[in-house]
């Protein structure tokens, strides 16, 4: 893009689309679209949260008896990991805003690393539950689960398979979002390495960041409700 005048107007960035009037308008349109998508994400998860609250309201002893089998420490580690990844994501966006490409790449690597740690911890949690017969819904093995609970000084009350159905659906859907996050984070990492992003153009970094923060927000509520609350 060469200008005939040495002091001519600065050209817009390479990803500017001709049907927008300004660069900022293009960025704003993309971001509004992202927010509307995030709204649908919140609404989708809200159905599961409501299911949890209904089960909890009707069968409090069942929920309290079952949740003792979840590892608070594992959940706590994952909370810290996810909060850290949210922080590195915010730093990646900031690096893009100030035009620090190595900073974007470094922070995105850390974010993806945290996402992978999260999934590894989840894998150990899930396999740990499966090995004691704790499966969702009709696959729940009551005898083995009750024996496991008794070993740890807890008692299963009522219909624990309902609680674990809710647990596996909520954390499972959240885990799918983390996996999707890893994919889109890898995509913007590749683009950052190609030098696509800078102070004029960082919409993809910012929007993937918003998605990643929503995944974090959902976990902020999942963790106390499933693992901690008595």
């Amino acid at each position: 893009m060469s200008s005939t005048h040495a002091h001519g107007p600065k050209p817009p960035h390479a990803f500017f689309q001709h049907h927008y009037d300004t660069v900022e308008q293009q960025a704003g349109a993309a971001k509004l679209g992202m927010w509307v998508f995030l709204a649908t994400e919140i609404l989708m998860f809200s159905g599961l949260f409501l299911a949890y609250f209904i089960v909890r309201a009707f069968y409090p002893e069942m929920v309290l008896g079952s949740h003792e089998l979840l590892s608070k420490t594992m959940g706590g580690i994952n909370t810290v990991v996810l909060l850290t990844s949210s922080f590195t994501m915010a730093m990646a966006v900031r690096s893009a805003q100030v035009g620090d490409t190595p900073g974007i790449v470094r922070n995105l690597y850390m974010t993806i690393g945290c996402a992978l740690i999260f999934m590894v911890v989840k894998y150990f949690e899930y396999t740990g539950k499966f090995s004691h017969g704790i499966f969702p819904g009709k696959y729940f093995d009551y005898e083995r689960a009750a024996a496991y609970a008794a070993e740890h000084g807890h008692e299963l009350v009522g219909m624990p398979h309902i609680f674990f159905g809710v647990y596996f659906t909520m954390t499972g859907l959240h885990g799918v979002h983390v996996l999707a996050g890893i994919i889109v984070l890898t995509w913007i990492l590749r683009r950052a390495q190609k030098g696509h992003f800078g102070p004029q153009y960082f919409t993809p970094v910012e929007n993937v960041g918003l998605y990643w923060h929503i995944v974090d927000l959902v976990w902020i509520f999942l963790f106390p409700l499933l693992y901690l609350v008595k």
Binding site: P9, K10, P11, P12, H13, F16, D21, T22, V23, E24, Q25, A27, G28, P199, Q200, Y201, F202
Partner: peptide
């Protein structure tokens, strides 16, 4: 943009 005049169309 957002009802306000913009001087610089290539800056965010």
């Amino acid at each position: 943009l957002h009802g306000k005049p913009i001087d610089d169309v290539v800056e965010v």
